[in-house]
């Protein structure tokens, strides 16, 4: 589709000072490749993409952010779950260009360096995965679930995690991990 661009991380401040994408955009982009800026895990990233490129493909194929996974590519599996402006959404049904000016957070943004997020620790402690392919999406949903306040019991957890399919069927262990973090047992990171 489009040529790949460099993967070097561009510090957010430097990119903003160059300032091509900071203000509201006027006029059409595309249909050919256009330069856009995305804020990914707190870092401003520049890339050239066609408007048809999904957020998921932009992250994986253009920026090398491969935590979000491509399962169904049609909004049915949840493997591509990321946060946009702090809300969990599906990267495969989001256009990358539509995320200019918004904050994108992937599973790579959960950990603090080598220090895992409590939910990541709880997934390890509870053996909450087998093949692991759905896990980045499960984690992004699980952390959001607790912030939304939809984890009062197992039935509610199951309902509000239903957008994340696990073909290994690790569901009981995923629920156990979520319960553990909900009850304050996930680790010491706030």
């Amino acid at each position: 589709m489009t040529p790949r661009v460099g993967r070097a991380r561009i510090p957010g401040q430097a990119a903003r000072e160059e300032g091509t994408a900071a203000g509201p955009r006027t006029g059409d982009l595309g249909p050919g490749p256009a330069e856009i800026e995305l804020a990914v895990n707190g870092t401003a990233r520049r890339l050239r993409v066609e408007p048809r490129v999904s957020l998921l493909d932009a992250l994986r194929e253009h920026l090398g952010v491969t935590g979000p996974k491509k399962g169904c590519d049609q909004g049915a599996c949840g493997a591509c779950t990321v946060w946009v402006d702090g809300r969990r959404v599906l990267g495969c049904l989001t256009l990358a260009v539509a995320c200019e000016g918004r904050e994108v957070t992937t599973v790579e943004g959960l950990a603090d360096g080598d220090g895992l997020h409590p939910m990541q620790q709880a997934f390890l402690a509870n053996d909450a995965f087998q093949c692991g392919y759905c896990t980045p999406g499960q984690l992004m949903s699980a952390v959001a679930l607790l912030e939304e306040g939809h984890a009062s019991d197992d039935a509610e957890i199951a309902e509000w995690m239903s957008g994340n399919i696990c073909r290994c069927a690790a569901y009981p262990n995923i629920r156990a991990a979520i319960r553990q973090v909900r009850d304050g047992g996930g680790g010491d990171r706030p």
Partner: peptide, 11 residues
């Protein structure tokens, strides 16, 4: 997916 242009409406 076929190519298309994109614009963001302000109002």
């Amino acid at each position: 997916m076929r190519p298309f242009a994109y614009t963001r409406a302000a109002d």
